[in-house]
Computed example of a mutant assay.
Amino acid sequence: MHNETLHTRDYLTEFGTNDYLSAYTRFKTIPWFMEHIKGLVRVFVNNSSHLGNERALEFGGGPTLVSSFVLAQYVQSITFSEYVPNNLKAVNDWINQVDGAFDWTNVFNFIIEQYHQQTGITLSLSECEQRLRTGLQRGGVLRIADVNEQSGCSVLDNPDNYNQFDIILSSFCLEDACLTKETYEKTVERLCMLLKPGGFLVLAHGRNQTFYYVNDKRFFAQYMNEQSARETLERMNLINIQTSAVDRTPNEYSDSDGYFIACGYKKK
């Protein structure tokens, strides 16, 4: 493994999209990941009666469709945004059913199982996938800029997006993208500007993490925990703030000791 820590612009040349996706082919051998999916589903089930159903934004989605699949069961339109072109291509390939696109069937079925266990409602895989494709086609798949530059982001800095989204979800992104705590807080503030009054912000992060590996490439992660995220959301004047966490054992691939979700509502 390489010990040099990569970040920001290095993602454009060093991030292995296929290597990252390969973890999802064996996700049932990764207990913390299954627990994270259960927790994400639980957050939305528990808050479902308070959610608007029109537009959602996934910010920094990587090459994965786990979070957007959950979102698709609640909203009509999903704007998927990401920094790395190869990650966007992986998402577009699935939307357009390109030969060789990553097969999410096993992961999606696991999400459906969790939804059934928590609600008693049985969902159809084909119908859920169609909801996801339709939602992404309506909202669009967009490239975003480096958040450390503080301006020039097609999503964050577009006044037409202010107060437009019922739900904004960012999963395992901001702690890796934001090089300082100040940039993290500013990015969360910019995301909050896009929420409708009463809108729901959901953030998932590695806990107490400073690095993670994709294949043999070591990437920066900002040290965060439930308390620091809660304090940020409080400074954004969000209400009904909730946190939940999943423990894991640090190893040579990541020094995170868990993953957590922090969420809250924009005041009406």
Rank of each mutant, 00 (worst) to 15 (best):
C263V: 05
S81P: 06
N237D: 11
G60A: 06
D255R: 07
N208S: 13
N3P: 01
K217Y: 10
G16Y: 01
N53I: 08
W104G: 07
H2L: 10
E234Y: 00
L201V: 03
I144Q: 13
E185D: 11
L57K: 10
G152H: 09
S124W: 08
E149D: 13
D93F: 06
Y265V: 10
E149F: 03
G16R: 11
A90S: 15
G139Y: 08
D166L: 09
F69N: 06
T64Y: 03
S154D: 09
D103F: 06
A221F: 04
N208G: 03
R55F: 13
K89V: 11
I168K: 04
E226G: 07
L203A: 02
E182T: 15
S81L: 07
W104S: 07
Q209S: 14
D166S: 10
G60F: 03
S49L: 10
Q73K: 12
T232D: 06
T183K: 09
V155F: 06
V107L: 14
T79C: 15
F44S: 10
G39I: 01
D19V: 11
D93T: 05
E226Q: 14
R230M: 09
P63M: 08
N240G: 04
W94E: 04
L65Q: 07
K181Q: 15
Q76C: 02
K181N: 11
E113M: 11
I241Y: 05
V147N: 09
G206I: 00
W32P: 01
D93I: 04
F219N: 05
A72F: 04
Q209G: 01
G62W: 09
W32E: 11
V98W: 02
E185W: 02
S126Y: 07
D146C: 05
F220C: 03
Q227H: 13
T134H: 12
F220Q: 09
A221K: 09
S170W: 02
V98F: 00
I112S: 08
Y74L: 01
R131T: 01
N53M: 06
L40D: 03
G198M: 12
N96L: 08
D257L: 13
Y24F: 15
G62Q: 13
T105G: 00
Y223F: 14
F260A: 05
R42Q: 15
N106R: 14
G62S: 14
R26E: 08
G206R: 10
Y213T: 12
L51Y: 13
F172G: 01
D216E: 14
R138A: 14
T122E: 14
N161S: 02
V43P: 01
L65S: 05
N53S: 14
G120Q: 13
P85Y: 10
S67M: 04
D176Y: 00
F211M: 01
G139T: 08
P159M: 05
H7E: 12
G120F: 07
Q150R: 15
A262N: 00
F220W: 04
S67C: 05
Y223P: 00
R207G: 02
N237F: 02
M193P: 00
Y184V: 02
L136E: 02
E129Y: 00
F44C: 10
T17Y: 11
F69C: 07
L71V: 05
V98S: 05
K89L: 09
Q227A: 10
F260S: 10
V45T: 10
L136K: 11
F110T: 07
M224A: 11
M193S: 10
N163Q: 15
D166N: 14
T17G: 06
